[in-house]
Design a protein around this nucleic acid. Structure first.
Lengths: 337, 337
DNA sequence: GCGCGAATTGCAATCGATTGCATCAGTTCT
DNA sequence: AGAACTGATGCAATCGATTGCAATTCGCGC
């Protein structure tokens, strides 16, 4: 069943059917209704590939979730999940479709093939990973691209994200105020976002003359198992640890599990702070202190900026979302250790 | 830049370029290499809409995640998230693309438009929701469709899922063995999967002459907040509750939070069992006892069955995945209450 | 009664690829 | 040398829609 068939059934030309289904005013109200009804009756839907080809209009957006060969399955992070949900909703609401694509993080510019092939109108990339350079190159080729991540100096592409540097500072100040002094850090500073969090965090500690030796920093991907293992290692290296800043809520939760296993209480013995404020953070036990990244606003912003870039044909400036610390139980004891 | 341009650059006909890029043996090895190199140099990628239109081949699959108007944002469930990740990986690995689509759960057959429009080759639907009838109608129209859900008697479409009935039984037996007698249930039995879990659960209780009055059953969607509220309500109605079976891990976690708030200990005062075994279940505290749904296998099975259905052009039989109880801390106390 | 404009509808070219068939050069065989 | 065949490439129709422009109809004013 195709447009020509429907045209025959309706006794009109295909062009009229095309216009009618598109709701064009050029077709009389009556004909329009008649054709639409007929289409519904016969389960006819306009072929998307043909429309796309002829009109050049494409209303699908590629959402790229890179994976790292090394740390198999980077899809386990609840923050990432929330972001995908938020993007799906934002795109659907604006009448766009969402193509979910996984590519190798070592080869981020494979994402540009989506656009070159006319597959998607634009691309939303989740995370900068280790390839700032590739992203810059893509933006300079004029590819419509928006990245969830942190804003780096002199950056040519558009990012949306929280103020990671500030976030790190907030955590450090909070833990210091809680009287903690032997503070560890969990996260992979090879990733720009994490690096910024670490930078803000380390700055404040330094300004307060609190040491942050290397042994208090465990490099670990966003995976629960890895987090647990890393936390145990951290405790081994520094048994007197009294607080941990995990660069993601998933890591924070895994860390809490490990701390419990080692016989420590949270927050009494060790305070834990996460990053993201995923939905479960408020329902975890103990409820998780964390830096809130407004996920819903983030998804909406990514979509809106990308769509505006498509319309205007130019790269728009990056955005930093409101970033604040949400203090809950995991870091807040009446009597700090 | 399109195929004709590349043909001109290479000094050959477009047809040759087409064959070369498709890796056809009809083109000499040498020409093929030359054209491929040229294409790479100029960032040329074959237009997908055109290919799709002409060849009729479509390698994208629609993954449909329904939402319920009533319980806003059904995208918060970690099990759902894991499933999406698993599907994305399985599809990518087989060279398919994944279109993530949200539709109104009241109108599931909107999913068929994806296929009618040639947008996707087939559809994977997550959850049966309340519209068994619509799904049956779709399958009878011959739409390539696979559903994550539970197998219902006389069903005409293909489902993949755990053995929900067995799962419910396992939970009941376990809780009884732990000495629990006043057991509550959290979940919406309007959903077939949950209904089956409840059926198995209730059967075993009945067979053991343990009462399951209505006041011990709270109907609640898969949302953390709702779970928390429902758990409090359950405690109000039945303060002596000594166990809860939550029909999803998210609900179980929320329930544990609520139990703590009410001053009860888990598992000493109240045992909690979930369903799904999401990744975090093992890292929660207390570690969550739950019925394992093998998510990775599930995603793989959904994809493989759908692809085979596309190939064979017929509906394949449903599958029930291995279903077992994973006993962890949340339900297992040395001395049951 | 004729011309003119507005409202509808139809014609045919077009989007960017794919593919059956024809073509052509070069070998091989007799 | 000519026929038959093989391997590589080109020609042109085709996929299913959209859209600029032409054509038709109708009402209305003069």
């Amino acid at each position: 069943m195709q447009m020509a068939d429907l045209a025959r059934l309706a006794g009109v030309a295909p062009s009229t059917v095309s216009r009618a289904l598109a709701g064009s005013e050029l077709v009389s109200q009556e004909t329009r209704e008649r054709i639409k009804t007929l289409a519904r009756q016969f389960n006819y839907t306009v072929n998307r590939a043909a429309t796309n080809l002829r009109s050049g209009i494409n209303r699908t957006i590629g959402v790229v979730v890179p994976y790292e060969q090394a740390s198999r399955q980077s899809f386990a992070d609840p923050f990432l999940h929330g972001m995908i949900g938020s993007l799906a909703d934002a795109l659907t609401q604006r009448g766009y479709e969402m193509l979910l694509v996984r590519i190798d993080a070592e080869n981020l510019d494979a994402a540009s093939a989506l656009i070159d092939a006319g597959r998607t109108a634009g691309v939303i990339l989740i995370g900068q990973w280790r390839h700032h350079d590739q992203l810059t190159a893509m933006a300079e080729r004029g590819l419509p691209l928006v990245v969830w991540g942190t804003q780096l100096p002199g950056q040519r592409y558009c990012t949306v994200g929280s103020d990671n540097h500030l976030g790190g500072q907030l955590v450090a100040r909070h833990l210091l105020a809680e009287g903690r002094r032997r503070i560890g850090f969990l996260g992979d500073i090879g990733l720009p976002e994490v690096a910024e969090r670490y930078r803000g965090f380390a700055e404040v500690l330094k300004a307060n003359k609190v040491a942050l030796p290397d042994r208090r920093h465990a490099s670990v991907p966003f995976l629960a198992d890895a987090g647990r293992v890393a936390m145990h290692a951290l405790l081994e290296a520094e048994p007197e640890l009294d607080a941990v800043f995990a660069s993601g809520d998933l890591l924070a939760m895994a860390a809490i599990g490990a701390l419990r296993e080692s016989g420590r209480r949270v927050p009494e013995d060790v305070a834990v702070v996460g990053y993201d404020d995923v939905e479960l953070a408020a329902h975890f036990s103990p409820q998780l202190t964390t830096v809130r990244q407004p996920i819903h606003e983030g998804g909406t912003a990514l979509v809106e900026i990308l769509l505006e870039m498509l319309e205007r044909g130019e790269v728009l400036p990056s955005i930093q979302l409101e970033t604040r610390l949400v203090v809950r139980q995991s870091s807040h004891s009446g009597e700090p250790a």
